[in-house]
Computed example of a mutant assay.
Amino acid sequence: MNVRKIIGWNLRKLRAEQGLSQERLALAAEIDRSYVGRIERGSENVTIDTLDALAIVLGVPAAALLVEPAKGERQPMPLSSGRKPKQA
């Protein structure tokens, strides 16, 4: 698996575990939502600054985005589509 795919895999996994949409993650990291999608698909060559911004929002060290998934690990499931109701 190449590094871009590893980053995308880990980004999607961490984002989904925290229940964050691509839109909310992008807003908090001050990047474009479509850019987050391209990163998760492994089609973007991400800068260190962008990795750092995403890691800060996710509350993990940037190195966590570079860890290769275990052999046989299932791809992270996407969140259900649609907007979530606002929490009080």
Rank of each mutant, 00 (worst) to 15 (best):
N2G: 11
N2V: 08
V3C: 03
V3Y: 08
V3Q: 15
R4L: 06
R4P: 06
R4T: 14
R4C: 04
K5M: 09
K5W: 04
I6K: 00
I6R: 04
I6P: 01
I7Q: 05
W9T: 00
W9F: 15
W9S: 00
N10M: 04
L11V: 04
L11W: 04
R12W: 01
R12H: 09
R12V: 06
R12L: 11
K13T: 05
K13S: 11
K13F: 05
L14F: 08
L14N: 02
R15M: 01
R15E: 00
R15S: 02
A16M: 05
E17V: 01
G19A: 05
L20I: 04
L20W: 02
L20R: 05
Q22Y: 05
E23D: 10
E23A: 10
E23M: 08
L25Y: 01
L25R: 00
L25N: 05
A26E: 00
L27T: 09
L27M: 11
L27H: 12
A28N: 09
A28G: 03
A29D: 07
E30P: 07
I31D: 01
D32L: 07
S34D: 15
Y35N: 08
Y35R: 10
Y35F: 13
Y35T: 09
V36F: 03
G37H: 05
R38M: 13
I39R: 00
E40K: 04
G42F: 06
S43C: 11
S43L: 13
E44Q: 12
N45H: 10
N45G: 07
V46G: 00
V46F: 03
V46W: 01
V46Y: 03
D49V: 10
D49Y: 15
D49L: 15
D49C: 07
T50Y: 03
T50R: 11
D52E: 14
D52M: 12
D52F: 13
D52A: 15
A55T: 03
A55I: 03
A55C: 07
I56K: 13
I56H: 09
I56R: 11
V57E: 02
L58W: 06
L58K: 00
L58T: 00
G59L: 01
V60C: 03
V60W: 04
P61M: 07
A62R: 10
A62G: 10
A64K: 05
L65R: 04
L66I: 08
L66K: 12
V67E: 14
V67A: 11
V67W: 02
V67M: 09
E68N: 12
E68T: 10
P69F: 10
A70G: 10
A70S: 15
G72T: 14
G72D: 08
E73H: 08
E73A: 14
E73T: 09
E73F: 06
E73W: 07
P76Y: 04
P76N: 08
M77T: 15
P78V: 05
L79I: 07
L79E: 08
L79S: 06
L79W: 07
S80M: 12
S81C: 09
S81W: 08
G82A: 06
G82D: 05
K84C: 00
K84N: 09
K84Q: 12
P85K: 12
K86D: 11
K86C: 09
K86W: 09
Q87A: 14
A88R: 14
A88T: 13
